[in-house]
């Protein structure tokens, strides 16, 4: 464990990790010595992998909290939503939904569409999350993009407990996101500068993820279909009603074009 800590010479990182470790040791007092050692070792192995997410989630979380605050929501909204939804892009969309008229089915369908990618994450984690008992439920609950990215790619050292490692990756990410949202939501109202235009942070987030995906794909048919159908439907149906027709349109076009798309190699598999 000391070796793992030593590899990370960044001093503030040290302090953070020591703080968490002490906290962890106190929390696990009832657990026997060996088990506690196993848990701490898994934490020490997991924490370094989450540090990039620490920066990203705290920053985006603060932006989300300030954004919610600027829309007139008290801090409890971003905090509760980050705790229970734990899906960044959907939470930004949720803020917009909460401002509109009451359409619960619409909200559910839009969520399924926006978070549809999680189905894919789940499918590829079926094997890894097997035989983890109770831990599995939390791991699936917290299967956001970033937790998936780490847990699906990192080669966990043999001496580290894999279940605890993945739990800590997920738990730390969850914690960073709630922490950021809380800071933004609570201190958003104390901000003195003019926050007009802060809502653009959502557009910027989606554009950045979109550009990342675009550059990763060799063929751009699917991205163009998504953009094309959505823009078409926005023009025809208007801003308030375009989402359901867009989703239906995208599903139909992708289903009809399944064969040609696969032939053209527009799909990576």
């Amino acid at each position: 464990m000391i070796q793992v800590v030593e590899r990370w010479s960044w001093i503030s990182l040290h302090r953070n990790q020591n703080f968490f470790l002490i906290l962890l040791k106190n929390c696990s007092k009832g657990v026997n010595e060996l088990e506690r050692h196993r848990i701490c070792a898994a934490f020490s192995a997991a924490f370094p992998y989450t540090t990039p997410i620490l920066a990203g989630f705290v920053f985006l979380g603060i932006a989300y909290g300030i954004y919610m605050n600027s829309l007139g929501f008290s801090a409890i909204y971003p905090i509760l939503m980050s705790l229970t939804i734990f899906a960044g892009s959907m939470e930004f969309v949720a803020a917009n939904l909460l401002l509109g008229s009451f359409q619960p089915m619409n909200a559910l369908l839009l969520t399924l569409m926006v978070n549809g990618r999680h189905l894919f994450y789940g499918l590829s984690m079926l094997e890894k999350y097997k035989r983890l008992g109770k831990k599995k439920h939390y791991l699936i609950f917290g299967l956001c993009d970033e937790s998936y990215a780490i847990n699906s790619t990192v080669k966990i050292p043999d001496h580290v407990d894999k279940g605890w490692f993945m739990v800590f990756v997920t738990l730390l990410n969850h914690f960073y996101w709630v922490l950021g949202s809380a800071i933004g939501g609570i201190f958003g109202s104390f901000i003195q500068f003019n926050t007009e235009g802060i809502e653009f942070v959502m557009t910027a987030l989606f554009v950045v993820i979109f550009v990342d995906q675009w550059m990763k794909e060799k063929k751009h048919e699917i991205a163009i279909i998504g953009l094309g159908v959505s823009i078409f439907s926005l023009i025809i149906f208007g801003g308030q009603n375009f989402i359901l027709p867009s989703m239906a349109g995208i599903l139909i076009v992708l289903t009809v074009l399944k064969r040609p798309l696969e032939k053209r190699g527009a799909i990576s598999a």
Binding site: S89, V93, M113, V114, G116, R117, L119, F120, L123, M202, T203, F206, V207, I209, F210, Q213, E217, I222, A223, I224, I225, G226, L227, V229, S230, I231, L234, G239, Q240, F242, I243, S246, M247, I250, L254, K258, L261, E262, I267, S268, A269
Partner: peptide, 27 residues
């Protein structure tokens, strides 16, 4: 997993992301 579901899992995420980008411009 059925082929069609695998296919949707792969293509829907990117198409939904495009929808999200357009969603930001709705107002």
């Amino acid at each position: 997993t059925p082929r069609y579901i695998q296919y949707l899992g792969e293509v829907l995420s990117l198409a939904a992301l495009a929808l999200l980008v357009v969603y930001c411009f709705k107002d």
